[in-house]
């Protein structure tokens, strides 16, 4: 009876939450809210770009950036994958433009139909071939850009598409921030994933554990932005960690440090491979860091 009551309240609570989120989404003009029947973000089960890590998320005009794509094809059984990379001036994604270099006069094709290597059996999840992007010179990327925008940064778009031989595809993009800011953003550092305060390494936890990212204390940086009147305003980065797992269940898809997440391991280990648990830490300004664990 008690269990039934808890379950009933839980269902009611989920339903109410969904409605409140719906109301909230309407209030902020968005159409996103949760649905238990839809695929979950945190489940790693298809061909998917997990992250595009730039060694320098923010550079001066003309700076070069090496990008490491994290790709997962855990159920692909080692099928052949190819990738394509293009770069161009940001067409205005932040104002609603599609994240694509199609039709752009500044389009640069960096790779086309190139083979994805490096994500190996048995988990097929890891860093795909890296590539380097050289950002345009100031006279191009800062053309007709206000001083305020030059300081805060003009985005240079990099698109990355990974395709399988049987027609599946995942498209992703990231921006390289090109700015005149004296102190440019650096990636946060996700050194370890902790389970109940202890480092989680290779052993699959026997039961439900609280997990958290171990992010260095210097990761959330202080920085400045110029407002529309050119006045500097101070900000501090907020570190968010996204969680993905191939098996088992994560209570939350994202956590804001220092909050914990709950991970429930699968009742039976998957055959022939380990369980993948990934944390991706972001600083809200393009800085990223990935930690992948294979748990057996």
């Amino acid at each position: 009876m008690k269990t039934h009551e808890v379950a009933r309240r839980s269902v009611h609570s989920v339903s109410m939450k969904r409605w409140m989120l719906f109301i909230a989404a309407l209030a902020v003009g968005s159409n996103h809210c949760g649905n238990d029947k839809l695929p979950k973000y945190s489940v790693l089960d298809r061909l998917r770009v997990v992250a595009l890590i730039a060694d320098h998320p923010e550079v001066a005009p003309g700076g070069s950036v090496t990008i490491s794509p994290w790709v997962s094809d855990i159920k692909g059984a080692g099928r052949a994958l190819t990738y394509a990379v293009e770069a161009c001036l940001d067409p205005g994604i932040g104002s609603g433009a599609l994240p694509s270099c199609d039709g752009s006069a500044t389009r640069v094709v960096l790779a086309q139909n190139a083979s994805v290597t490096g994500i190996s059996a048995p988990e097929y999840t890891g860093i795909a071939p890296t590539f380097t992007v050289v950002t345009p010179a100031a006279q191009i990327i800062f053309l007709k850009r206000a001083d305020t925008e030059q300081y805060n940064g003009v985005a240079y778009l990099v698109t990355y598409t990974v395709s399988s031989s049987d027609g599946q595809k995942d498209r992703a993009f990231r921006r390289i921030v090109v700015s005149t800011r004296p102190f440019q953003n650096v990636n946060p550092v996700l050194s370890r994933i902790l389970a109940s305060g202890e480092e989680l390494t290779t052993a699959l936890p026997p039961a439900n554990v609280s997990i958290s990212p171990d992010v260095t204390t210097t990761s959330p940086e202080d920085y400045q932005v110029k407002d529309s009147n050119g006045v500097l305003q101070s900000r501090k980065e907020q570190i968010t960690t996204s969680w993905l797992a191939s098996d088992g269940a994560l209570n939350r898809s994202r956590t804001v440090s220092p909050d914990l997440n709950d991970y429930t391991p699968p009742t039976a280990k998957p055959a022939g491979r380990g369980v993948i648990l990934i944390g991706v830490t972001r600083d809200d300004r393009g800085g990223e860091s990935v930690k992948k664990l294979v748990l057996n």
Partner: peptide
């Protein structure tokens, strides 16, 4: 028809 992954913000942009 599709979603494009925004790796900076960890969201998908609807097409």
């Amino acid at each position: 028809s599709d979603g494009v992954y925004d790796a900076d913000n960890d969201v998908y942009i609807p097409v």
